[in-house]
Design a protein around this nucleic acid. Structure first.
Lengths: 211, 211
DNA sequence: TCGCCAAACAAACGGTTGTTTGGTAGTTGA
DNA sequence: TCAACTACCAAACAACCGTTTGTTTGGCGA
């Protein structure tokens, strides 16, 4: 961020007020604006995820969306707010995928395995909608809202690990951070075509499995 | 990189030719130029490690060194070459620390633990000379020379893991990448003042320990 | 038909980026 | 003594950055 972000108040991604009055008039004449909105989120998500935040310019995003750079500011007040919107979308997408995968399993280690597979697939598979979640790594000074969303996502894993009934000698917090780190770091060495993300997830979990 | 790096040929960090003729004339009159060289490496290392490559400008580096921006180009042909020099320095520093720590232990798991502690301390402790090793994460297109250095460093862990005689069901490559990932990722959540890097390293290794 | 408004265009703004150029002290080797 | 060289300064360069401004377009409700 350029340390010069005016008007950083209010909830950013809560655009589209009076949303209830809009879809009433939609009679299949045109695509709904939500479809446009999705392009305005998924394209920067793809760019942020593959090139990183700093290496993705507003001009890059505008070109990918098919718009002029200045027009982006009709939808988002700043690049930072756009990133938060993208990050928020990625968190909810990935959290839905993880929860759905977990729901089909019953034993604790099986549930955690399903969560890890879903996490890795969102990170490394075709569309890679979750890659943006690990694209910052600025180490310091990432927006507070991003931290909140990240913690909310990791809380899902926190619960799954609590179910494991690990021995008392194991620190559950370090266990969680280590497991997530080993998965997230895979984005630095994973190459498509080789081992599948699901297989990698299973092997990473097997390394810490016991019993 | 800005995708427009001219003159990217030849070995970059192999500056200082005829280095053997220099220390002969040094009669304690002034500090050796090697001392200056160290500042020219350690300061950008500190900046790259804490703010990342993209967020560190040549003007930032020049100010930290105590020089004008253009003068940096007397020592390094480009920012990318400076990064490679810094990265190379960090790899050799960290590799020395790891090898020294390993030498004092005999049993395989103890040797790996010593290596992990040394790795984490270089990453997270006061000067954090190894933080630059994980400061890129550009996912794609990092210079080939950096990849070579990184692989050479990780080969140390590869040997230590081979000594462990892990069960046949454990993939040693994934085990190594997972362990290193769990440690490297700690730079995103570690805060000084709490648990020590050595303690974190021990706990992360304990999670995958067996026997 | 009128007024409104979201959405986009067209063109610039000031500032920062990595980098280049030309000159200049100070030391060094012959 | 003098040429050569190292290390640096001072000033600029073009390119790109995020962002702003003013205007145009097209569709919808009243």
């Amino acid at each position: 961020m350029t340390a010069k972000s005016r008007r950083a108040n209010a909830a950013p991604q809560t655009r589209r007020p009076k949303a209830a009055s809009r879809p009433r008039a939609a009679e299949a004449k045109r695509e709904f604006p939500d479809e446009r909105r999705q392009v305005l989120i998924s394209e920067p998500a793809r760019l942020f995820g593959s090139k990183g935040y700093e290496n993705t310019s507003m001009r890059d995003i505008a070109a990918a969306v098919g718009i002029l750079p200045g027009s982006l500011y009709h939808h988002f007040p700043s690049k930072g707010d756009l990133f938060i919107a993208v990050y928020s979308f990625a968190v909810s997408q990935s959290m839905d995928a993880v929860k759905a995968a977990v729901a089909s399993r019953v034993e604790p280690w099986g549930r955690l395995e399903a969560a890890c597979i879903a996490h890795m697939q969102g990170l490394l598979d075709k569309n890679r909608f979750a890659a943006v979640l690990v694209s910052h790594l600025s180490v310091d000074s990432l927006p507070e809202q991003v931290v909140i969303l990240r913690d909310r996502y990791e809380a899902v894993f926190k619960e799954l690990i609590a179910e494991l009934q690990l021995p008392a000698g194991i620190d559950q917090r370090i266990f969680r951070l280590g497991l997530l780190g080993s998965m997230n770091w895979a984005i630095t060495w994973y190459r498509p075509g080789g081992e599948t993300p699901a297989s990698i997830a299973r092997k990473l979990l097997n390394a810490v499995r016991r019993g």
